[in-house]
């Protein structure tokens, strides 16, 4: 039987070029990380792990890494906790201002991060939250909300509501129905939203650079500060480690849920 979903040679060629375009910089960074030279170059004369060892001599990178992790976990978790009720409300009910609520949650996608950074900086300093963990979490929640909401919304919209009605008719209260039926059924979307929110928060530089303080420096901010001072392969090795961690995370998630289901919101 003929398969109609196969790409033709032209489309395959295009896909290949596209893939190379995306992957080439990552491959180059990973290769540079193994250089034995003291400057950014491809490892032509021999492989070396000296720049990976060098990370250990820079505890500020390791501190920044953990700070970014905590920040991303905190803000992704809170964003998803806000996104679930918001998604249920907007997907299922017609109320005045519904469009406005959606537009509000999605607006960070449209406002330039530089503008947000400046705005948050003056706002946080007035509140006395400048450079604090809570302040950064609050700003990151706003920024990553659209990503979390989109995927949660897709799963809420796609859910068969009669399963909830069935649970209710079988004697479950609204809360038990939510916990035992609704949450398990939208879990792929919620997890996908969390992962996307986590990655976005972990990766964010443009806005964070305005509101981070020396005691609350995220990894992207630390890396940016580092290359403004010196350009050495340390940046490449740190990047390689992040790429590696991300890949491991993606493989685990794919095994548990299936990545296409998670990030496309089926």
């Amino acid at each position: 039987m003929r398969r109609y979903d196969k790409n033709g040679p032209l489309a395959m060629g295009f896909n290949l070029i596209f893939l190379v375009f995306i992957l080439a910089p990552l491959v180059v960074v990973c290769l540079v990380a193994f250089t034995d030279k003291g400057y950014l170059s491809l490892p032509r004369d021999g492989l070396s792990l000296r720049w990976f060892v060098a990370i250990l001599d820079h505890p500020e990178f390791i501190d920044a890494f953990w700070y970014s992790i905590y920040l991303a976990i905190g803000s992704a978790t809170l964003a998803v906790m806000l996104a679930v009720p918001a998604a249920i409300a907007t997907a299922r009910y017609r109320f005045p201002g519904r469009g406005l609520v959606m537009a509000f949650f999605m607006s960070p996608l449209m406002v330039p991060h530089v503008v947000l950074g400046v705005a948050f900086l003056s706002y946080l300093s007035r509140l006395g939250w400048a450079g604090t963990y809570l302040g950064l979490v609050a700003c990151h929640i706003i920024l990553i909300m659209p990503y979390a909401l989109r995927l949660v919304l897709a799963s809420v919209t796609g859910m068969d509501r009669s399963a909830e009605a069935a649970a209710r008719s079988l004697g479950a209260t609204r809360w038990v129905t939510f916990r035992r039926v609704t949450v398990p059924l939208i879990l792929p979307g919620v997890t996908g939203g969390w992962v996307l929110a986590f990655i976005t928060s972990f990766d964010e530089l443009t806005m964070t650079i305005f509101i981070a303080s020396p005691s609350s420096t995220t990894l992207p901010v630390r890396m940016y500060q580092h290359i403004t001072e010196t350009i050495d392969p340390l940046i490449a090795s740190v990047s390689a480690v992040i790429i590696f961690i991300t890949m491991v995370m993606m493989i685990i998630l794919d095994r548990i849920f299936g990545l296409d289901k998670l990030l496309v919101g089926k």
């Binding site: 068969d160 009669s162 399963a163 009605a165 209710r168 079988l170 004697g171 039926v181």
Partner: peptide, 20 residues
């Protein structure tokens, strides 16, 4: 009275089984 307090069994058109 709320649906969960009515003691009624329902078979839905889509069956509405809990897939998990």
């Amino acid at each position: 009275v709320a649906p969960n307090a009515r003691d009624i069994g329902i078979v839905f058109q889509s069956y509405a089984l809990f897939p998990h």
